[in-house]
């Protein structure tokens, strides 16, 4: 076993009813890395993140975080332990204001002052959110909602940030901006597991990558190597 991996999935199998969505998945994320999990629609990427966050229980296998078994723990406990997620489809609370969404992100934290500092920090990263502070989050544009989702997940002060398709449905210009921010967040010390269909963007910022096909990991390695891998080029990079 890899003792110093921050996150480790050890032979995970997850099923929805009788259908196995993940089959014997193993992967690891080391502290400080950006690891990306790429794959086509329906490959099981979101299922993987939902399992790590405790929304789904693995049928077999275990999830280790900082060496401790967290499989089967409740989602809010996993957040308290240091993993937060920006879910697919953004999952903002449309009826709450932008600011209240951020406050919900910091739900398990007590220290008001440091929460306030972090709020100012995300406003610094995404100034548009500061302008939209009092606005109902449902009225934000798609790009702004994605910024809010990432910011909200950051408000938990995670050691590990899970991002589920942050580029989904956004204009190329905004995608660029968001990926730049993801890199910056990582450089400031947060480990990231990034799920993407946009393999090209993801492989360019990641250190390590896994390729998922119908619930199985079919390829893994340095992101740079995968970028040059002919199979990956053909299947995922449209070359």
């Amino acid at each position: 076993m890899n003792g110093d991996a921050l996150l480790k999935l050890d032979h995970i199998t997850v099923a929805y009813g009788a259908i196995k969505a993940l089959k014997d998945i193993s992967l690891s994320v080391n502290e400080g890395e950006i690891v990306t999990l790429i794959g086509a629609n329906g490959a099981g990427k979101s299922t993987t993140l939902r399992t790590i966050s405790g929304l789904l229980k693995p049928q077999e296998g275990k999830v280790y975080f900082k060496g401790h078994d967290i499989s089967g723990k409740k989602p809010h406990v996993i957040v308290q332990q240091g993993i937060s997620q920006a879910p697919e489809g953004r999952g903002i609370f449309a009826n709450l204001s932008t600011e209240d969404n951020l406050e919900m992100g910091a739900y398990s934290r007590k220290d008001k002052e440091s929460i306030q500092r972090d709020k100012e920090h995300v406003f610094h990263i995404f100034p548009i959110l500061q302008e939209r502070r009092k606005q109902e989050a449902g009225t934000l544009s798609g790009g702004e909602q994605q910024m809010l989702t990432i910011s909200r997940a950051l408000m938990a002060r995670p050691k590990l940030l899970l991002l589920d398709e942050p580029s989904l449905g956004l204009a190329p210009q905004i995608i660029k901006q968001i990926f730049k921010v993801i890199q910056e967040i990582n450089q400031q010390g947060t480990t990231i597991l990034l799920v993407e269909q946009n393999a090209n963007m993801a492989l360019h910022i990641a250190h390590k990558a896994y390729v998922l096909e119908t619930g199985k990991i079919v390829l893994q390695g340095k992101a740079q190597d995968l970028l040059n891998n002919p199979d990956v080029k053909k299947a995922y990079l449209g070359e």
């Binding site: 409740k74 809010h76 308290q80 937060s84 609370f93 709450l96 919900m104 739900y107 398990s108």
Partner: peptide
């Protein structure tokens, strides 16, 4: 209040609320 906003968040979406660290 924070608890009240959490009630609104849970009403909106159970799973996404739990991803905030809210014990639903």
């Amino acid at each position: 209040t924070k608890t009240g906003k959490a009630m609104q968040a849970v009403s909106f979406h159970h799973e996404n609320a739990s991803l905030m660290g809210i014990d639903i």
